[in-house]
């Protein structure tokens, strides 16, 4: 059973791991920020085209 859960978790993680990440100087591949708590309908990178974006990764815990 443990193996099944592990396999499922790995399979779910594969598409994310396989997604290309941009290096500095490269075009960032299109992605979505998902649902903002306080958004205005813009959610994907292309929705913000024309504005510089500072993304801050943070945690509460």
């Amino acid at each position: 059973m443990k193996f099944s859960y592990l396999t499922a978790a790995l399979l779910l993680a594969l598409p994310i791991a396989a997604q290309k990440r941009a290096a500095v100087g490269e075009q960032v591949p299109e992605f979505s920020f998902g649902q903002f708590l306080n958004g205005d309908g813009r959610s994907s990178l292309s929705d913000f085209y024309g504005s510089p974006i500072m993304i801050d990764f943070w945690g509460v815990h």
């Binding site: 941009a22 500095v24 100087g25 075009q27 990178l45 504005s51 510089p52 993304i55 801050d56 943070w58």
Partner: peptide, 16 residues
């Protein structure tokens, strides 16, 4: 964390 990234007006990664 903390970690940050700056994306330019044309969608290029400028800093990380």
């Amino acid at each position: 964390i903390p970690h940050a990234a700056l994306i330019g007006v044309d969608g290029k990664l400028l800093w990380d």
